[in-house]
Design a binder for these strands. Structure first.
Length: 555
RNA sequence: GUCCCGGUAGCUCAGGGGAUAGAGCAACAGCCUUCUAAGCUGUCGGUCGCAGGUUCGAUUCCUGCUCGGGACACCA
């Protein structure tokens, strides 16, 4: 427990004791003490609505109850400097803020471990994300999923979860046959032959490039093979090539994976068949019209789903169920899938399958909403370069890696995202990425100067000298960090991190303009402020690292 | 028709059962002989989509409607 949590917990206890002393409620009727930090500074450092909550039990007006609580409160034990009753019955606490400086000491002791919480208690979580088909390059939607998934994994790790990141490779099934056929067509065309693309074929520039390379490297040699052999060769070549490209793009985007799971392995290990058998044993499988069905309607789906088509082939759903059964067998306490908005229709049936296998609440599916690019105030539909959809790689080249990461993560995953490329590119105060990075660079600059001027650093600076308004604001913000981590992780809302670090940067800039850190005439104060700057730098760095954004020392 | 997400300041978005609803941008007015002005300070700006319900209290929760986006194969 950190300083802030200790103080809050102590205050809560004191409030409870006061309620009991004032005979307003017994232990069993005690509502949970809710402490909030008022937005308005004049409403104190903390406020509680306890009096309103007790109104019914105590059968008295809230303001009278508030007065009773205040009368009985042990202010000293709770580090409360003064108390006010306000509005309909709020109790506002003004704290003795001297405890706040302990935050700096804590950050020194813990370094980049500051902010760690134990919300996860070591729970094993698997996050499966991106999982784009290896039939093309990664696009905007994938980039959002990648940024969100990576940040979520980082934050959950920080909050004490044992996280594994997995990418599911759809390297079996129809789309791979289509990939082979598409390469076949482009390859023939590259050699000047006529060949028509199947309706569902992949028409992207990436496939054309790939086929051109093949033609250049191998000439007409593939044309001499029989069709089955040629398609098989193209299948393998295309798969390897595109998967390498995806891996490379993700690496560039600073999104690492612990494991890459192949759909094919499900077939070679006979797990698809086994999945159908499992559902059959549980009694959720029946045959009709020559097909084998899963009775997903038992689990809230609006219709039953086919597992094996009347031509004997599996549907897309079946290997997916097998895949999740495999995940289950690996012993995770929780599974999180991150899917694009276009897949939300599969949520119910996937969850139905998991429930049918007997693991009701194991799977959580997060949906990331659509991304729209804007440039010069207009919606960008297609890449100027290729005339096709804009790829993740292009976006990074256009606006930079840090901006791309930051912009994707700063919005809630379930809101549509308007990505303003001009803003992301601009090197100005309009751009939140630069604003935060600048705060970090500013601190580094001050620390450099302190060193150049030969300011002796102190092992134990007198932090009680940090009493200016902007210093208190900064200290409070630093103290909030563990709670931000906790919320971001447990609610799976990594967008809280960019929001927090933006506010922290804002506090830093305000402080910078109000107070001077390096003052040769006031060594003790300078040392205390340098300590505050070092602590702030640590937290900015850490928060940015969670969302995959660099913290530059100079700008 | 069914399902999912959203509707909050001119724009992009946070927030969320409580006190005067926040931030950035835009507009306007100030601040550099002083640690990076990629910064700071202030002003302007809102029936929180509409209507009911629950509650001492709803922008927040519930229901209905409405607008915008997306999804609804024995495709993957």
């Amino acid at each position: 427990m950190n300083v802030v949590e200790q103080v809050e917990s102590q205050l809560k206890q004191s409030i409870e004791q006061a309620v009991i002393k004032a005979e307003l409620a017994g232990r069993d009727e005690m509502p949970e003490v809710i402490l909030e930090t008022p937005k308005e500074k004049s409403h104190g450092d903390y406020a509680t609505n306890m009096a309103m909550q007790l109104a019914r039990v105590a059968k008295k007006p809230p303001r009278d109850i508030a007065q009773d609580i205040v009368d009985q409160l042990d202010t000293e034990a709770a580090s409360v400097k003064s108390v006010e009753i306000a509005g309909p019955g709020f109790i506002n606490f003004f704290m003795d803020t001297s405890y706040l400086t302990d935050v700096v000491t804590t950050i020194f002791d813990q370094g980049d471990e500051y902010g760690q919480t134990n919300d996860g208690q070591g729970e094993r979580v698997q996050i499966e994300f991106v999982s784009a088909n290896p039939t093309g390059t990664l696009h905007l939607g994938h980039a959002r999923g990648a940024a969100y998934g990576d940040a979520l994994a980082n934050v959950m790790e920080k909050a004490g979860y044992d996280v594994e990141r997995e990418y599911y490779i759809n390297d079996a099934g129809n789309q791979i046959d289509l990939l082979a056929q598409s390469i076949d067509v482009r390859y023939a065309q590259a050699l000047g032959e006529e060949k028509t693309m199947p309706d569902e074929g992949y028409r992207g520039q990436d496939i054309i490039d790939l086929a051109n390379d093949l033609a250049e490297e191998h000439g007409r040699s593939f044309l001499d093979m029989n069709e089955a052999g040629r398609l098989e060769a193209f299948r393998e070549h295309g798969l390897n090539h595109l998967l390498d490209q995806i891996k490379h793009d993700l690496e560039t985007f600073r999104v690492p994976f612990d494991s890459w799971f192949s759909e094919r392995s499900l077939y070679t290990d006979d797990k698809v068949h086994a999945a159908v058998e499992s559902l059959k044993e549980k009694g959720y499988v029946y045959e009709s019209e020559g097909a084998v069905w899963f009775r997903s309607t038992d689990f809230g789906d609006d219709k039953d789903r086919v597992l094996i088509k009347n031509d004997g082939n599996y549907t897309y759903l079946t290997p997916d169920i097998a895949y999740h059964q495999d995940k289950i067998s690996r012993g995770f306490d929780r599974l999180i899938n991150i899917w694009g908005a276009d897949h939300h229709g599969y949520v119910t049936r996937m969850k139905a399958a998991i429930a049918a296998l007997g693991y009701d609440d194991l799977l959580d599916i997060k949906i990331t909403q659509m991304v729209n690019l804007f440039e010069n105030g207009e919606k960008v539909k297609m890449s100027k370069r290729t005339g096709k959809a804009v790829t993740m790689k292009e976006l990074i080249e256009e606006v930079g890696l840090d901006a791309t990461r930051y912009f994707f993560i700063m919005r809630s995953n379930d809101a549509h995202l308007d990505f303003d490329m001009d803003l992301a590119r601009s090197e100005s105060n309009d751009n939140p990425v630069y604003y935060v990075q600048y705060a970090h660079a500013r601190i580094c600059s001050m620390l450099r100067q302190a060193e150049e001027k030969g300011i002796a650093t102190s092992e134990q600076p007198d932090l009680s000298l940090l009493t200016a308004e902007k210093e208190i604001d900064l200290l409070k913000r630093l103290g909030d960090y563990p709670q931000v981590i906790s919320e971001a992780a447990t609610k799976q809302m990594p967008h809280r991190i960019p929001q927090y670090v933006f506010d922290l940067a804002s506090d830093l800039h305000s402080f910078y303009n109000a107070e001077k850190v390096i003052d040769q005439d006031q060594l003790a104060l300078t040392q205390a402020r340098i300590a505050l700057m070092q602590a702030t730098r640590t937290v900015i760095q850490d928060a940015l690292a969670l969302i995959g954004v660099h913290a530059p020392e100079k700008m």
